[in-house]
Computed example of a mutant assay.
Amino acid sequence: MTAEIRLVEVTDANRDAVIAVRVRPDQEQFVASVEKSFQHAEQYPDAKPWYRAVYAGDEPVGFVMLSWNLVPGPGFRGPYFLWRLLVGAEHQGRGYGTAILDEVVTLLRAEGAKELLTSYVPEEGSPEPFYRGYGFVPTGEVDEDGEVILTLDLTTRP
């Protein structure tokens, strides 16, 4: 059973609550904070950042950010790249990560997207098993930061 979530636009009214969502300390080396994600979105407008808070009921439990329909170029992979996916430490293990990806995949398919790319740091404790379990497969590429690039075929995944 998939967790019930909603993707919610970040506004002045919920920004602080969304920024307060944090991963476990041992995961911080693998995923930037929500606050850092907002900074990256401002710094790299050419990456066409699209982000949403993830809510379960009235509580923010996670955050997701993608490059949305960009023209791939130097430093940018796409057209759709999963830039951030995080679930708050106290909310992990409840299916929220899978639910977030399910929601994103539905939105991307509605846009006509054929694939979703992402990357991970190849170290112990990385999110690789989660992504591989969802259906992402390595492209064979490694980016300039040493992150392994993964792809999800949106035309074949149920």
Rank of each mutant, 00 (worst) to 15 (best):
V18Y: 08
A110Y: 14
T2D: 14
T156F: 08
D153E: 04
L108R: 11
Q29V: 13
D153G: 01
I19T: 07
E35V: 03
V148T: 10
P45H: 00
R94S: 08
V104L: 15
L101I: 06
D145L: 15
Q92A: 01
L70C: 13
A17W: 10
V137Y: 14
Q43V: 00
V31C: 13
W68C: 05
E123Q: 15
N69T: 05
V54Q: 08
D145N: 14
E147W: 07
E103I: 00
I19K: 14
A56N: 09
T2Q: 10
G57C: 02
A3T: 04
Y44G: 00
G133P: 02
L108T: 06
G93N: 01
V61I: 11
E103Y: 03
V142N: 03
G97T: 07
D26S: 10
K48Q: 11
P49F: 01
A32D: 10
V71E: 14
P138R: 12
A56Q: 12
E141R: 12
Y51S: 03
Q29D: 14
P158Y: 13
R22M: 07
S33H: 01
E128H: 08
L107D: 12
N14L: 05
V23P: 04
H91G: 04
R84P: 10
A53I: 05
P122T: 11
G78P: 06
V18C: 06
T2C: 03
T118F: 05
P74H: 14
L86V: 03
R77P: 02
R24H: 11
G125S: 11
F63N: 11
P72L: 08
G140D: 11
A110G: 14
A89E: 09
Q92K: 02
P129W: 10
R15G: 01
D102M: 00
I5Q: 06
L108V: 02
V105N: 13
D102E: 12
V137S: 15
E144H: 09
I5C: 06
G97E: 00
E9K: 03
L154Y: 09
Y120T: 04
S37N: 06
F30V: 01
A89P: 07
G73Y: 06
V121L: 13
G146C: 12
G112K: 09
I19Y: 09
A32V: 10
G75W: 09
L150D: 02
P25L: 00
Y80P: 04
V10Q: 07
T118E: 13
P72D: 11
G62V: 00
H91Y: 09
H40E: 15
T11H: 06
M1S: 13
G133H: 04
K36H: 04
E147T: 09
T106Q: 14
S33D: 02
A13H: 09
